[in-house]
Nucleic acid binder design. Structure first.
Lengths: 106, 106
DNA sequence: TGGCTAGTACGATGGGTGTCGAACCGTATC
DNA sequence: GATACGGTTCGACACCCATCGTACTAGCCA
């Protein structure tokens, strides 16, 4: 009985909660991750982000992003590939992600 | 020596922090307040919002909104009149407030 | 003066959050 | 198999946060 289903506990598109998304994006490190993910536009392993926190903290932040519905994770070998859920976020909260990313870049 | 300057500790437009704004908006009660403020489009006393919390908690939420730069407060008699800082938010983070309000309404 | 109303200040409390290190797991490669 | 690598899990910790009740202040009105 393993608990490695953690990559699957992502909300369905219609279950994405606005409060959870805003909270997920309100942390500077997570916002940095999201911006980096957005600029790359390709699935990126968790460890490829230059964040000033430990591995376990990084796992924590990706979990918050995943459970909020901001990020999608899938396994590929030993790595965890992350992608922005642009489509789902845009469908549910049109313009929100871009407004936040623009605000950060601003 | 009174401490009633609390209504003035609002950030200048250029000091409004994105993380603080997102955090302020990530709470359902505060988001409800902001939406109500937006719909009325007039300065409203703090007590005129139907929120399921106590007076002191309400004060707390308005302080968070004020310190984040989302809301402006001014005294008028015994009341505290609240207004959305639409102009400042729009200047600093274009489209963000509307995206959030649309997301909530959607 | 006295009371009423609107709101703040304070202290307490329970729960969440960001952080870490150490231990562990899965997958690849030697 | 052994080792290394990428991540997760698990406490633990300090801090923040939403909430409350009580006490308080400021302004208004009789």
């Amino acid at each position: 009985m393993t608990f490695l289903q953690t990559a699957t506990d992502q909300p369905a598109r219609e279950d994405i909660d606005l409060g959870a998304v805003l909270h997920a994006l309100s942390d500077p490190i997570r916002l940095e991750i999201v911006a980096a993910l957005d600029s790359r536009a390709e699935a990126c392993p968790t460890g490829s982000f230059e964040v000033p926190v430990s591995k376990s903290t990084c796992t924590h932040h990706f979990r918050v992003l995943r459970e909020a519905g901001v990020v999608r994770q899938r396994r590929e070998g030993t790595a965890r590939l992350n992608t922005l859920r642009r489509d789902d976020l845009e469908a549910r909260f049109p313009g929100l992600l871009d407004a936040v990313l623009d605000a950060k870049a601003g």
